[in-house]
Simulated scan of single mutants.
Amino acid sequence: MKKLKGKNIRVITIVAGNDRLDLAKSMTADNKINFPVVVDYGRQFYSDYGIRVYPTTVIVDKEGIITHSIPSHPLTFKKLFEGYIKKALGEIDESKLNDMLSPHNVKADKTHLESTRLYNLAMKFTENGMIELAVNSVRKSIEVKPDMLKSHILLGFLYLEMDDPDSALTTFNKALELDPHSHDAKTGLGGAFVMKGELDKAIEILNDAAIANPYAQMTYYELGKAYELKGEKDKSIEMYKKAIEKIIHKQILPSSISKCK
């Protein structure tokens, strides 16, 4: 963003589906976001703009016209973002944009690509119940790229699947070192504490993980288990209902690690 200073560009963050402004402010403060934040009550903006993937980066020109959008956060995000901004500012034309984004000119991080390949392989093994093969693949993914957050998170959930909460705790803590705000890592950490019977710790972490999290179905499910084990039936039912509501509204990550078992 520093490169954009002085170029008459305004950056706005839109938080969807969060009806508590205080939570949105807390989230942006924790992530050191220093530009305006708008809460999209009822997801009206997302509906009007046809957004289906979170996050999505939208480039709007000075006439208020959407020129480009970048769904999710692909490996080529920086190159795409730079090119689209230059095009919107009139610094380059369509031809130069195409040249800039040509596959021959986009240098992929080979380490990242190999780690991602191994992660995807681990996901396939996971989906087919081949847990040991999944663990081997995701460990290799981490060896190739030790800061691959999603690989640490997947490995942690695999350890939970193997009833190994201690290894899961170590792995999720490593993930939180990489990203202290990771909802998935906090959810997994809470799940590990549930498995170990440390229910108060689990509830504290899981409640934190549920804050400003659009994909909290598994978090609420783990909270339901924790309260159930504590004998707090009403609270447990409340959490299970929230998990079901998230699933009904299709706020589910496209991976097996986010599904309630």
Rank of each mutant, 00 (worst) to 15 (best):
T56I: 13
M27S: 09
E238V: 00
K5W: 10
G17A: 02
F172M: 10
F45N: 04
D147K: 13
E204D: 04
E238S: 01
V37T: 15
M27H: 10
L89F: 08
I59S: 01
L169M: 03
N173R: 12
N128L: 03
L97S: 07
S151Q: 03
I9E: 00
P180L: 15
I248N: 05
E198H: 07
T28I: 06
A29D: 07
A168N: 13
K78A: 12
P165R: 07
Q217F: 06
S182R: 04
Y240H: 08
Y215M: 08
D22N: 13
L113T: 11
S167P: 06
D200S: 15
S151C: 08
T67D: 01
S102G: 05
L223M: 05
T219Q: 11
I33D: 00
F77A: 04
P214R: 00
V106F: 05
N136H: 03
L80H: 02
D93C: 14
K124F: 10
H181E: 14
I203A: 04
E132Y: 13
S72P: 01
S72K: 15
K78C: 04
A108Q: 14
A88Q: 05
A175E: 02
T76M: 04
K7D: 08
L121S: 09
S95A: 12
M195Y: 06
H68A: 05
I211C: 01
V135D: 01
D19Y: 07
D109Q: 09
V53S: 02
K5A: 11
D99A: 06
L149K: 09
E127V: 11
I142D: 06
K87E: 14
N128I: 04
I65G: 00
K110M: 12
L223S: 07
V38K: 01
F35G: 04
L158E: 11
P180K: 15
K62L: 05
V194C: 12
T170E: 12
L223G: 09
K86H: 06
L176M: 14
I70L: 01
P254V: 02
L89W: 08
P103V: 10
A29Y: 02
T116D: 09
I33Q: 00
D184A: 14
Y119T: 00
P71Y: 15
Y119S: 06
Q44S: 09
D179F: 12
Y54W: 15
F157Y: 15
L101W: 02
F81G: 05
L169E: 10
K261E: 09
S167Q: 13
L21S: 02
K32W: 09
E232L: 13
D163G: 05
L118I: 01
S151T: 01
G188T: 00
G83P: 12
E82Q: 10
M123N: 07
G90Y: 02
I131P: 15
